[in-house]
Amino acid sequence: MKIKKRGYVFPLILLATISIAFFIITLVQLQSSHHNQLMHLNSYQQALNVAYSVNVDIIGEIREKQWANRFFKGKPVIRTGQKLFGTTYDMAVEDHEPDKCTFNVKIRTTIGEKRNLFYWRQRYVPNMLDFTRVSFPVFFGEFPPELFEPAKKAEIDKLVDDALQKAADNQNKVTQIVKNISTKPTPQDILKELGAIPPGKSSTDIQDSAQPRPAATKPPTKESTATKPKTSDLVTEIRTFIDPLDTQSFPVAGKNICGSDLMIRDAPWGNVIGQIPPYTGGVQVSGLQGDFFEVSYNGKSGYSHINYVEVPGHTPSGIEPPRPPGAPPPL
């Protein structure tokens, strides 16, 4: 008797082995991918946390030393191989436009093999009325880590400048888009306006897109109804105490506005050494001493009272000044 074998076992073993191998490989890959994803997320968040923390410290340092004495004034400060929270980082901070109180901060973090470069352009707020605000970011972005190197400064600054310029160029367009969509009654209309419907889709494919948008609520905050003095009246009042004359530049041409001869004295409240005829111009005014202009007229140099001499930016009161206490009596 001849038995014909069909060979079940070997293919079965082979098949089972291959299936199990593939299955295990798939599982391992899947777990590895989850692990990598988690590590990547954690390491990026860690890098961002470290960069943010370093930036907080930089702002704290500016605040302690104040803007005029900032630690990077006039020359960039670069610190490499620093450690924070177990992460290594390099930091560079430098003035951008000091007259506008702007400065750049570059922070490059290294976690394992992974490097990230974060860039802030910030503006220091030097006024006291915004006293809780030390600075605000003008720009924040992430760049290839090699751009941290000082030799690449121009390159990275240009990228930032271009991005800011682009944003400025687009500002009107953005404002117009916002204005246009603000009046659209449904999400569907907004998607149409923005051209944001994917190819092959229609706006009706998007759930509830034809439903009217809920009305926007507004904060109840409002203007004050309290009445205040006019600022121009206050300025007039201030000027009764603070004479605008003190910012006058000399020499200037002046004029006697007095209806009678104006005295030229040898010193403030000193002896009379000459006169300027009524309503006469061509008086050279070269300085201010006490309440008297230093004047020269017709070869005579001396002092005439500011109440009677008109110069650009100063309208004399024309009021006769009293002789101050302690001034020598007239001869």
Binding site: K222, S224, F241, I242
Partner: peptide
């Protein structure tokens, strides 16, 4: 005297302007 009284008036200007600005920012917020 003039400096002190001038500052006194400048103080009023400060209050008027800061109150006006705050009031207007509240309206802008709305």
């Amino acid at each position: 005297y003039n400096s002190t009284m001038g500052l006194e008036e400048i103080k009023k200007l400060f209050f008027v302007c800061v109150h006006e600005a705050a009031s207007r920012y509240r309206a802008l917020m709305k």
